[in-house]
């Protein structure tokens, strides 16, 4: 499996990232990990395998409300209990022709980050190499990665700000790689009253893909627009223009909506590494003096998100 031309000892940091990426897609593994974000610690089991070229994955939330996410190829199912907040989200997110933009993961990463190897360590009773991904500017966060020496799988990661404060930690407690994955391992436990939501990776019909009328006059170096869309909010069915940007590792989304009837205020809300910044855009549209609400959400520093939000402008079609 994962036969590399380069042996583990000789890999460059870039080759390690690439190995990690492919291992996640191609390897068979079954493990339990914890994910710490903000003040919240979750524990989940992940099972992954490839059957006849189709990726199959199952993610099981082991604490709190029973939640499972099962993926077969491009089909994603969320299995939840009634009353779970996550249900409020729209069931389909059209990925559009730009979905692949993120599959090119790590391309251009070294333009925005410095990669370096820092010896070995042990995680989940496995030998790991340590890889630092340090941002070249203050507009994005850094990562410390522990990769399985044998397979390249990510055993632990820390998302850190410029001060070194850990904003998110992901870590496997146990991990089996390469072992047989059974149908039972991949089958959701459909408890009583379980609800299944399908999230399809479908391109939205072309007629709905009119171009959005907004753009960011400023984004940090290296971020490019990966996707845009006009969708409806789950709550009000109002049209919301959505722009998505990525620098290969970090991503942020920009949402622009007409000013809500109840009004809205500028706001900063942070949860772990994710920040949401709302700014009121006064008379942003050339056509009228309607106020808009711009919300930038992403794993980026607050000041960066604010600067982006303040740079959103209307573009005449």
């Amino acid at each position: 499996m994962l036969a590399d031309a380069v042996s583990a000892d000789e890999r460059t940091p870039e080759q390690w990232l690439d190995t990690m990426n492919r291992a996640f897609l191609e390897a068979s593994y079954d493990g339990i990990f914890s994910y710490f974000s903000g003040d919240d610690l979750s524990t989940m089991r992940v099972v992954h395998t490839v059957t006849n070229g189709v990726q199959r994955e199952r993610l099981v939330h082991l604490n709190g409300a029973p939640r499972e996410i099962v993926r077969t190829g491009d089909e994603v199912e969320c299995i939840l209990r009634p009353g779970d907040e996550i249900l409020a989200l729209e069931s389909s997110i059209p990925a559009g022709p730009f979905a692949r933009a993120f599959s090119r993961a790590f391309e251009g990463v070294s333009d925005n980050y410095t990669l370096s190897l820092h010896g070995t360590d042990r995680v989940a009773n496995r030998e790991a190499i340590r890889l630092a991904v340090v941002p070249r500017d203050a507009q994005r966060y850094g990562f410390r990665l522990w990769l399985d020496q044998a397979t390249g799988l990510l055993l632990r990661s820390e998302l850190v700000d410029m001060k070194g404060t850990k904003l998110e930690i992901f870590q496997f407690a146990t991990l089996k790689v390469g072992g047989p994955i059974t149908e039972q391992d991949l089958a959701p436990e459909s408890g009583a009253g379980a609800l299944t939501t399908h999230l399809a990776l479908e391109a939205s019909p072309p007629q709905e893909r009119r171009k959005v009328s907004w753009h960011a006059e400023w984004v940090p170096d290296g971020f490019t627009m990966a996707s845009w869309d006009i969708r409806r909010t789950p709550s009000s069915l109002k049209a919301v223009d959505t722009l998505m940007y990525s620098d290969g590792l970090a991503a942020f989304s920009v949402f622009i909506e007409d000013m809500p009837e109840a009004g809205a205020k500028a706001l900063v809300s942070r949860s772990g590494a994710t920040v949401a910044v709302s700014e009121v855009l006064i008379g942003g549209s050339q056509q009228d003096a309607v106020h808009h609400l711009v919300t930038v959400v992403g794993e980026i520093p607050t000041a960066t998100a604010q600067r982006i939000a303040q740079s959103i402008r209307y573009v005449a079609q």
């Binding site: 996640f24 992940v46 409020a88 989200l89 999230l199 991503a251 994710t274 992403g298």
Partner: peptide, 21 residues
């Protein structure tokens, strides 16, 4: 609203990554 957008963003990134992670 901010939290709905956060979830939305997480979803979007997840789907576009084509990985369950």
């Amino acid at each position: 609203r901010a939290h709905a957008y956060m979830l939305h963003h997480a979803h979007h990134v997840a789907l576009n990554n084509r990985s369950v992670v």
